[in-house]
């Protein structure tokens, strides 16, 4: 058993761009669910819009990186408005149903053969990374140490991804300790009470939906940069993984989604490495390698269950809040 390789691979995930993407998407959900109480089950849709908005703008229209970035963000703002205008006046559960359906609609639109020339259908899109790589100020070579050693492009991608995550976290931290954040948290507790105090609850919920959605969209772009854009990556399971990360870290916290994402990916990589090697070594004779690949999700699920049972407020959540859960 090559324990060193298992731990090495797990450590790689600690600062991988995918971890950053999940952290940012979870931070968006923290704004929606943790702070405002909006049940957005369509974060995968926002991420898909970011990834496809970025890739299509570059591949089909030849936009520069910043133009493609703005297209993705614009698409998610429009998406949030379309979702929010009819549902934010209704009770919270309606938004959950509408968002989960809308995210599926987005994914299926990108999958359908009708638009294959633009979206690449089920094969997805690739070859949109040159613009981003050209912005890289780092010279060729290798940076970092140990498991965190990468080539110039991967290092550049990690720097950009984590800078965005840090900026987004600072944004959420500042905005949630301001009077704006107070209104947002008040809406989570009881929107009628906030309405009775003269606040335009509808507009605040819309702002929150757009803000968290834009985070999800940018996360989608970061997610797309180390790989290709494939529609099957944006299924509802993606949203549920992000919810798992959010609950793991603490729903109404800033650091929770980030640390939660790190824990999630390190655990996933660790179990994946462990199970596949255990199957190879014949420790699990009843299991094939393919079955082993699925087992890691079961083990991650068990690990998350344990955390939620023994620390239900999440890693960074406030224990006091649980004393008053209705």
């Amino acid at each position: 058993m090559d324990w060193e390789a298992i731990f090495n691979n797990a450590a790689v995930e600690l600062i991988s761009p995918t971890t950053a993407a999940y952290a940012l998407a979870a931070l968006g959900l923290a704004v929606h669910f943790g702070y405002t109480g909006l049940l957005n089950f369509g974060q995968a849709g926002f991420m898909a819009l970011g990834a496809y908005g970025y890739a299509i703008s570059i591949l089909t229209f030849g936009f520069p990186v910043w133009g493609a970035f703005l297209v993705g963000v614009g698409a998610s703002v429009v998406f949030a408005l379309i979702l929010g205008i009819p549902t934010l006046r209704l009770r919270a559960d309606y938004l959950a149903i509408v968002t989960i359906a809308a995210a599926e609609i987005v994914r299926l639109l990108f999958t359908t053969n009708t638009f294959a020339s633009v979206t690449g259908s089920a094969n997805g899109l690739s070859g949109y990374k040159n613009g981003f790589a050209a912005l890289n100020p780092l010279a060729e070579g290798s940076y970092g140490f140990g498991p965190f050693e990468n080539n110039a492009y991967d290092t550049w991608l990690r720097i950009v991804a984590w800078s965005i995550v840090i900026l987004a976290a600072l944004f959420v931290w500042q905005v949630m300790r301001s009077p704006w954040g107070r209104v947002i948290k008040g809406i989570r507790e009881d929107e009628d009470a906030v309405r009775a105090l003269g606040k335009n609850v509808y507009a605040y919920k819309m702002q929150s939906l757009i803000l968290g959605g834009v985070f999800g969209t940018i996360a989608g772009m970061i997610f797309a940069l180390p790989r290709a854009v494939v529609p099957s990556n944006y299924q509802t399971t993606l949203t549920f993984f992000i919810y798992a990360i959010l609950l793991l870290g603490g729903a109404a916290t800033v650091l929770g989604p980030i640390i939660g994402s790190m824990i999630f990916w390190v655990l996933l990589s660790f179990f994946s490495g462990f199970v596949s090697r255990a199957v190879e070594a014949g420790w699990l004779p009843f299991m094939t390698t393919i079955q082993g690949g699925q087992l890691r999700f079961i083990l991650v699920g068990v690990a998350i269950m344990l955390i939620v049972i023994f620390r239900p407020q999440g890693v960074f959540g406030n224990k006091k809040e649980l004393a008053f859960v209705r």
Binding site: S178, P179, W180, G181, Q207
Partner: peptide, 19 residues
């Protein structure tokens, strides 16, 4: 915070000014 929420015309209740 409950009390502060009651105050009218707060500048910081705009998302961008909140920053």
């Amino acid at each position: 915070d409950n009390m502060l929420l009651g105050a009218k015309g707060q500048t910081g209740e705009n998302m961008f000014r909140a920053l």
